[in-house]
Simulated assay, not measured.
Amino acid sequence: MTRRPIGYYVHHHGAGHRARAEAIAAAIDWPIVLLGTGLGTAGIDLDDDRPISGRFDGVDETASRPAALHYAPLDHNGVRSRVARITRWIATERPALMVVDVSVEVAMLSRLASVPTIYVRLNGDRIDAVHLDAFRGATALIAPFHRDLEMALMPAWIRDKTCYLPGITAAAYPTARQDNRILVVIGRGGPPGDGAAIAQAARACPDMDWRVIGPVTPSADRPANLDLAGWVDDPGREIARAGLIIGAAGDGLVNAVLAADSPFLCIPQDRPYGEQRATARALHALGAAMTLETWPSPDQWPSLIRQAKALPPHARNRLHDPRGVDAAATWLATMAAAAVDQLEPVA
């Protein structure tokens, strides 16, 4: 069988999209090529499509934007260049599939270029007309989370078209847990952590060692039990070592917490379509995490930590697949083989 490559489009906001793509690429028995902004030598590096302001939520304000698209700004050289680069690669390499993680526009572009698409579907209220069109046009959908975290409003036809693949980016670490360590995780997709608020929380729990990974605003009066580590090379190992994780509800962190079987106090951040809040509410309802809407006052922390640690492990264990990346790689290779079988031979 001819192994025409799989193209994998990687969105450049946050770290989760690239982490999924690289994990699958390392595990799959099929040629795969990553396409995205900021990939460098890891794939086909596309020009940036973000506005000059740098503020990017995936929606433009163009009055004439078609109803089937979210982001199609006018006279943007980066957009023009990346569309040309993607379609040129498609025309040359004739991929078996295009995995799109995530972009309605790239999914539509791939379909227009006559390529079967696999759309990575994130959680949240994504039943607007634009997303629904992308879901309809895709050969299949991937949800990088357990089906029990799905929002109740999601139509049955979308669920039926979805392959649920939790645990793609997470691996368990055989590391001794330090029960008195609190790990605060700040991701790339949102603002830096509030250094002053974290310092107050650590001061309210003097018997606990607090450690923060990720960017944090400066704190003038940092207590001795607070360590600000910044970016670290192996956040999964840090998560496995901690007695409690505090962080948002992005797929990467949620998967890592579940893989480590760590107690989790989740404070979701605002994201398009309520993605993180949907995941956080489901985790809370299933007893897999304690969820808060906002950062609590210092006096609340001792009680909250006790409650989060008391959550039953089985509630979070069942939401994780330790073979998630292998399951994703096997499924995607099977889809690519089926697509090649169905594609008409080129004369």
Rank of each mutant, 00 (worst) to 15 (best):
M1S: 13
T2R: 11
I6L: 10
Y9F: 15
V10L: 07
H13C: 01
A15G: 02
I24L: 08
D29N: 13
L35P: 00
L35C: 10
G36E: 06
G36N: 09
T41G: 03
G43D: 03
P51G: 04
D60E: 09
D60S: 15
S64W: 13
R65I: 12
P73T: 11
H76E: 13
G78C: 10
V79C: 10
V79Y: 06
S81C: 03
T92I: 08
A96Y: 09
S103F: 08
A107I: 00
M108G: 14
M108R: 12
Y119E: 03
N123T: 14
G124Q: 04
A129T: 14
D133I: 11
R159F: 02
D160M: 09
D160N: 15
K161N: 03
I168C: 05
Y173E: 13
P174S: 06
A176N: 08
R181C: 12
R181I: 12
L183K: 03
G189H: 02
G190Q: 09
D194F: 08
D194H: 04
I198N: 00
A199Q: 01
A201S: 14
A204Y: 06
C205V: 12
P215N: 09
T217V: 04
P218V: 09
P218Y: 07
D221Y: 02
A224D: 15
D227I: 11
D233W: 01
A240W: 01
G243A: 09
I246K: 02
G247N: 08
A249R: 00
G250K: 01
L258I: 10
L258A: 05
A259W: 05
C266L: 04
C266T: 15
Q269T: 12
Y273A: 12
G274W: 07
E275W: 07
Q276W: 08
A278W: 04
A282Y: 00
R306Y: 00
Q307I: 10
A308T: 14
A308W: 06
A308F: 11
A310P: 12
R323C: 12
L332F: 09
M335S: 05
M335L: 15
A337T: 13
Q342M: 11
V346S: 13
V346W: 05
